[in-house]
Write a protein that binds this DNA or RNA. Structure first.
Lengths: 220, 220
DNA sequence: ACGGGACTCGACAGGGTGTTGACGTACGTC
DNA sequence: GACGTACGTCAACACCCTGTCGAGTCCCGT
């Protein structure tokens, strides 16, 4: 078994020599099938057989590429996270320039990335309860984001732009949690949710209020 | 089939005459078994056979009482929600007395109720993705809470205690979402979470900041 | 004593998962 | 150009869980 491995790392397995084998196509086909099916029905309603047939292989062959259905989702999630991190870039380092605009940019970038892959995000949220690997990956990623936000808040406090208050880490956790749940509701569309058009501004408003106690934080 | 029905309604079926039949005990036993097992393993890892054996009956007999595993959880959730609503009482009507204390009371009451039944709450959050009935019940309940908070915010704005800003409904949705996700993380214990001891104060702080832009809202 | 509702379970059908073992097929090697 | 070897593939199997059906038992009111 070569193709499928950790998925905790970054990308597709670095094959030794020739690369571009048949299996590479198949693996891609499985992934593509998964994301496609996910936009029409829930993850639980997709069987391994569906994935296999969609990729033009038999069910046992699926196991040659991935150890389980969950591993496929894990790989998909991994990619979305990469993309989100890339989209976020170094916005947080340029906060002082214009806090409001930078925070908005950060939230908007995440919103775009998650929105573009809502099927994957939604599916992950749904299996997080049952799939330990997805849960752990998400926990690790969240921890990084929380730390980044925590540091940004502390920097804003140091420069006197934000008042002291809650421990920065607790605030960072709360704010990240807020976004996660609000996006979930907006993308899932069941239950009370903020309209997709407004969600970035709503989140931004709560973030600014919680961090600065003001909607117009002072620039450098 | 008498015992198990909607579960959307309030409590156990009002039997016609004699009541206290064997089935009543069995139904209770199933419910109790479910809540007990839930505190040791995830909902997905509990089979109907486990529930049946735990209640001292065979698997087919289980189906006499509940149409599915999900229906058991639904009933459990129903009870927790009743309890939460009862615990919340009319706090929101007495907001103006002392906004900070009342909001804190509201959050603390919910915290206590959910904390006391964390296994059920956690399980519901996990199956919400797969079980349509749980999802719908939760959506309905959330809608009620959102409306209550929305009205409270509007009342605070009318009396001049809270500034205008985001549409009250959007703010109410965001704040409810915040609590839900933060509690989930705290109770689940995986991934970054606010310590259980601090969670009420952290939530309160964000609520006050978002609603009043201040930690010390003015009393009547 | 009897009809019927409450209650119970053995046995089955169906569908999903994960594994095994054998079979092709390509390609590097001597 | 015969030969190993690793890649890629699948039929068939064992297993577990769900939901249902039909055949029972027990008890209560008439």
């Amino acid at each position: 078994m070569t193709p499928a491995r950790a998925a905790t790392g970054s990308a597709t397995s670095r094959g030794r020599r020739p690369a571009r084998s048949v299996g590479d196509d198949r693996e891609t086909a499985i992934l593509a099938t998964a994301e496609r099916l996910l936009s029409h029905r829930s993850f639980a309603d997709i069987s391994i057989d569906d994935l296999a047939r969609g990729a033009g292989i038999s069910r046992p062959t699926f196991y040659f590429y991935f150890p389980s259905k969950g591993a496929v989702l894990l790989t998909l999630l991994d990619r979305v996270i990469e993309e989100a991190n890339a989209a976020a870039g170094d916005v947080l380092d340029r906060l002082a320039e214009n806090p409001r605009d930078r925070w908005r940019e950060l939230i908007a970038r995440f919103h775009e990335t998650f929105g573009a892959h809502r099927a994957v995000v939604l599916a992950c949220a749904q299996v997080r309860g049952t799939d330990a690997e997805v849960r752990q990956l998400w926990a690790r990623v969240l921890e990084r984001w929380v730390q980044a936000i925590e540091e940004a808040i502390e920097a804003e406090r140091r420069r006197g732009a934000a008042p002291d208050g809650l421990p920065a880490r607790d605030l960072a956790i709360a704010l990240n949690s807020l976004n996660e749940r609000v996006w979930y509701a907006t993308f899932a569309g069941d239950g009370p949710a903020v309209a997709e058009r407004d969600v970035v501004d709503v989140l931004l408003d709560v973030w600014l209020a919680a961090i600065y106690r003001s909607t117009t934080p002072p620039p450098a």
